[in-house]
Simulated scan of single mutants.
Amino acid sequence: MTSELLTEDRGRDIARRARRNQLTRAAQWFAGIEADPYGLVLRAGTGEPTDAEEAVRALGPLHHSTLLDTWVTADRAVAQEVIDNPAFDGPGPAADTPGGDPLPFRSAVLTLDRASAAPLAALTAFGGSLLWADDAACVEKRTATWARTVLAALGDRFDLAEDFARRLTGPVLAEQLGLPEAAHERFSRLLPDCRHALDGLLCPQTHATALAAEAAETAMVGLLTDALYESTADTVRAAKIMALSAAEPTAVLIANAVRLLLDEPGGWRRLAEDPDRAGEVVEHTLRTAPPVRLESRVVRTPVTLAGTELPAGARVTLLVAAVNRDPRAPRDAPPFGLSPDLHFGLSAHLVKAVARAALRTLAETHPGLRADGDPVTRLRSPVLRAPARQPVAAGRGRP
């Protein structure tokens, strides 16, 4: 009888959260219909969001989306202040949010606060107790080995995002986390259902996707608890954050970099002739087509931002791609994004290292690579604008 009651309670809880998820998505859709530029960004179809992002910029350094009750900025200085100021913290809701979290299926480990993220970052640093590699060069060497293995199993036509980039990140991350080889396959099989976690921080995913993600994250905790060399509450949490915040952004970064190069006349040829330019390509992609386009923070203590007083509980979203296009930003400013204060403080260094090695190896192996159809962006992906498909043909000779 007790298990039946628990099952009924769980069913009611899922139904309640599903209704809240639908209401949040409806609010975003309605905001877009009303031409709210932030609503248009969050509607997240397959179109390019640049016009909506620039519409936010035109409304000033800090725009209030009244329909979605969120402050939004495309201003570099304002965005940097949000990252630097401890008054702004993780994207999770305040404990007293009326009605609960408007996005009730959000990944709990990606809503951590600064105080929780800081000690975990030491575990995942190069040379830390959790990450296998002592430096970026070691990661790149091992990634190149895995990349050649993945590419050797592909034909002359393949999907760059699904068949190469996403297939690569699983074994690379598993190895870097020190998981035994017997756990690599299961770890890689769990990652696809976790790939929507970052988008789910701001955009409600479909009910089936949300439930699959919850199940995959629960299974991931079990796997890491059993397989990590030093399994503690902190190492399991840090490893899970690494998996969710590194795998899909790395794949998106690789795919975006290749797309930019193939769209640019002679772009891929120049990389093929000098594969060591891969680092430069990664930095350029982080600036012009970042793998994470939206960063969200919540005000924890009242603060003044861009001359506006924000109360505790106010939500702020940074339009990362638009921030990088800010004409008033210093010319030598590094790419903005993969912010160091929260989950990317644990994984950004690995994301960049794996992307550099993947691009270098792909250019060495397939110097004649070319697009073989139009890329398609995944729906409900405003944070990542992740590719659903990106077909390429791999010419074997010199371009």
Rank of each mutant, 00 (worst) to 15 (best):
G307S: 11
V282S: 11
C138D: 12
A74F: 04
A322E: 13
R10Y: 15
P61L: 15
R270K: 11
A355Y: 02
L362P: 10
R142I: 07
A321W: 05
G266N: 04
T50H: 14
P375A: 04
A133P: 15
H366F: 05
F164T: 08
A215E: 15
G279L: 05
L228D: 04
P86D: 02
H343T: 11
F344G: 06
C203F: 00
A321H: 10
D101I: 02
R293H: 05
A333R: 15
A289L: 10
R57M: 06
E54V: 07
F344T: 08
L253D: 10
S339G: 08
L191N: 02
P192G: 03
D96L: 07
D75Y: 06
L201Q: 05
D274R: 14
L191T: 05
D332R: 11
A125P: 08
A353C: 02
G313R: 11
R43H: 11
R106L: 03
A312I: 01
G170S: 02
F164L: 07
P98H: 14
G307F: 08
L160W: 15
P327K: 12
R167G: 09
T97V: 15
R43I: 05
V320A: 05
I14M: 06
D75L: 03
E54G: 03
P367A: 01
L211I: 10
V383P: 08
R106P: 08
D163K: 05
P275G: 10
L160T: 15
V258F: 13
V292D: 09
A152G: 09
R331M: 12
G395P: 06
H284A: 13
A118F: 02
P180E: 06
D341N: 03
W268I: 07
F344L: 07
D89W: 00
A108V: 14
A238W: 04
G170L: 06
Y229W: 00
N324S: 04
A386S: 14
V299A: 04
E364K: 12
G279E: 07
Y229P: 03
L319R: 15
L151R: 02
L177Y: 04
E230D: 08
P391V: 11
D89M: 01
P334M: 11
A137D: 13
G45W: 13
E364W: 07
G127A: 00
D341G: 04
V303W: 03
W132S: 12
L244S: 02
A272T: 05
A289V: 11
